[in-house]
Design a protein around this nucleic acid. Structure first.
Length: 582
RNA sequence: CGGGGCGUGGCUCAGCCUGGUAGAGCACCUGGUUCGGGACCAGGGGGUCGGAGGUUCAAAUCCUCUCGCCCCGACCA
């Protein structure tokens, strides 16, 4: 039992002015966290208790499939050079030097260090499969930390890594993680969804993200209520309605039309009386990559053609250009490289396209008589038909799927909603094992590369997304499994001896029954204690007040505000039956 | 990286435009009255106004630089 009067639980009436999302406001107001710097937080007593509860659930479940390690947070440059990610990670990596000038970094993930162990230690297929995990701090110098604990620069992650002899065995390790993740998030009381995901900087093939839908989220997820299809927008595809192409005008060949001063899709479409869907737009980018030998940055132009009303999906684009970094070209660059005014770029007769990568979005496949830029100031072209009027070497799916478009599996309308990513599982394949030289002997005595998976859970995000899902104007409520306490006992008047001894007795009985009990013995008015109790996320409250003379107390469920009178005699049994109903 | 906003007791903010030597509410301490949904009265402690430089007789206030924090954008011809 913990006595509030002796604890440090600095609750605030008002949220800090710069807090925007519910979890940030309430974590601060409830005295869970305090900010030290942008994206860097201290966890106080209640916050640390909830974190520990979550961590224990994660550990219990992970122990059913893997073994817990603890790796260093500080890494030598060499292991990151070995995987090629010392440069890939760029400014997101915290870097430092030791006293003799050697480069070090703070671990933002641990593929390299785990693979280093595997490389040195694993020798035989008989040692496989292995699943190694840890629960540890990660450091990422985010360009924009935000929303309290939702996007931070130091956070706690459960990360695990599997090593298997072949792809079939990896499937097993992957599935084990998928199932364990579901159990973990179920126990934490989250409503979540597993969605297909883009692999990003981790590399690899298949991956799923575990998402919690909330407006505070930064990811967009497309999902289908009819068949269960769900994918991050970075990966999601959709079926498009068939667009009726325009009829050919004139001789059917590309035809110049004057579009004086019109540079945007909307202006041109409106002016010509067509839909943006009948247009194609031209996007010009500069892709850059660092030459591994010389260390020089090499820039190359990339042009993308898309349907006028579609948006480029940067994740898909990044994949299409082999993971290079990219940025939109400035108008001056466009004019310099393509001799065409920005705003009038188009597919036909662009000058200087040698060495330019041209990618066409698959939504333009089979389309005819589109309107496109003419590469000439104040002019567009009609009757532009891909493959007839200009060659297409690269088709790719580059567009964002949108709400209302057809599910790729069943055709029902897709929903698109914001979500927070709480977990991510990847089939990494051979990327790290190969680049870092991990090898084992198979049963034929042949040297083979083990295949890897990597799997992460953001501990703080379990807490924040739980709060985002379960809060009201007075505070938030967590499921007992992750709440800092199961129940708070509130004697309404501490100077009433009978009332206090009843409260003490109840607190002790509940504690003896195995519950985490917070006893609010502060000399405060009842109203103050009720407000605080509502704020701090504890799922149950027992008010010990006047009804003590009748042998009764009030048992209040925080989430619904339901209150029931309960006999003091047998309170532990009563509480047990109530809490087990959740 | 671009744009915007904000830095004044622990918290929320006023004062700044129009320079004259810092204020409210909450929180905190003492005493009293209260005591089931953030009480009231009285008294009290606490602030180099983010930092540096400048203008001025005088700077929280005006100017320059700088640091920090928050938000938006990084979707585009």
């Amino acid at each position: 039992m913990r006595r509030w009067s002796k604890l440090f639980i600095p609750t605030l009436r008002e949220a800090p002015a710069d807090a925007e999302v519910a979890s940030h406001k309430f974590l601060v107001r409830a005295g869970y966290i305090r900010q030290l710097a942008a994206g860097i937080y201290s966890y106080l007593f209640l916050g640390q208790r909830s974190m520990e509860k979550i961590i224990n659930i994660v550990r219990e479940e992970m122990d059913t499939i893997g073994q817990e390690f603890l790796l260093p947070a500080i890494h030598p440059r060499e292991v990151w050079e070995a995987s090629g990610r010392w440069s890939v990670m760029g400014d997101n990596m915290f870097r430092l030097k030791d006293r003799s000038g050697r480069d070090l970094c703070l671990g933002m993930t641990h593929e390299e260090v785990m693979t280093e162990i595997a490389r040195k230690e694993l020798r035989s297929y008989k040692q496989l499969p292995q699943i190694w995990y840890q629960i540890q701090n990660k450091f990422r110098d985010e360009p924009r930390p935000k929303s309290g604990l939702l996007r931070v620069r130091q956070f706690t992650m459960k990360d695990s890594y599997s090593f298997d002899i072949d792809a079939d065995a990896l499937d097993v390790s992957y599935k084990k993680h998928y199932d364990v993740y579901c159990r973990i998030f179920d126990r934490c009381g989250l409503k979540y969804m597993a969605v297909e995901a883009h692999s990003g900087a981790m590399g690899g093939s298949m991956s799923h993200e575990f998402m919690v839908f909330t407006e505070a989220g930064e990811d967009m997820v497309a999902h289908c209520a009819a068949c269960g299809y769900a994918a991050n927008l970075e990966k999601a595809t959709s079926k498009l309605d068939v667009i009726e192409d325009l009829g050919a005008s004139g001789d059917g060949k590309p035809e110049l039309v004057e579009t004086l001063g019109m540079k945007t899709i909307e202006d041109v479409a409106k002016f010509l009386g067509v839909s943006p869907k009948q247009k194609m737009k031209t996007l010009a980018y500069t892709a850059s990559e660092i030459d591994k030998k010389t260390g020089e940055t090499r820039n190359s132009p990339v042009i993308v053609f898309m349907r006028g009303d579609h948006m480029l999906n940067e994740a898909k684009f990044s994949t299409a250009i082999g993971g290079k970094t990219f940025r939109p070209m400035q108008p001056e660059e466009i004019e310099k490289v393509f001799k065409s005014p920005a705003g009038y770029l188009g597919p036909i007769g662009i000058p200087n396209t040698d060495g330019v990568l041209i990618i066409v979005d698959s939504a333009l496949k089979g389309r005819k008589n589109l309107v496109a830029g003419a590469n000439k100031e104040n002019y567009h072209l009609k009757n532009v038909t891909p493959e007839r009027d200009f060659p297409v070497a690269n088709w790719a799916d580059l567009r964002n799927a949108s709400e209302g478009e057809g599910c790729p599996n069943c055709g029902a309308p897709l929903k698109v909603a914001k979500a927070v990513e709480i977990g991510h599982i990847f089939k990494l394949g051979y990327k790290y094992a190969e680049s870092m030289g991990a090898r084992v002997l198979d049963k034929d005595g042949k040297e083979v590369t083990p295949i890897m998976g990597s799997y992460g859970i953001g501990i703080e995000r379990i807490l924040t997304s739980a709060i985002e899902q379960s809060n009201d104007e007075n505070g938030f409520f967590l499921t007992p499994a992750i709440a800092s306490f199961d129940v708070i006992i509130v004697p309404t008047n501490i100077s009433d001896a009978a009332l206090m001894s009843a409260a003490e007795q109840i607190a002790k009985e509940l504690e003896d029954a195995g519950y985490d009990v917070l006893f609010d013995d502060r000399d405060e008015r009842a109203g103050v204690k009720f407000k605080d109790a509502d704020l701090v996320g504890i799922p149950f409250r027992i008010n010990v007040g006047k009804k003590v003379s009748e042998g009764k107390v009030e048992l209040v469920r925080r989430s619904t505000r339901e209150s029931q009178d309960a006999n003091i005699a047998g309170i532990a049994e009563t509480f047990k039956s109530v809490i087990n109903q959740l």
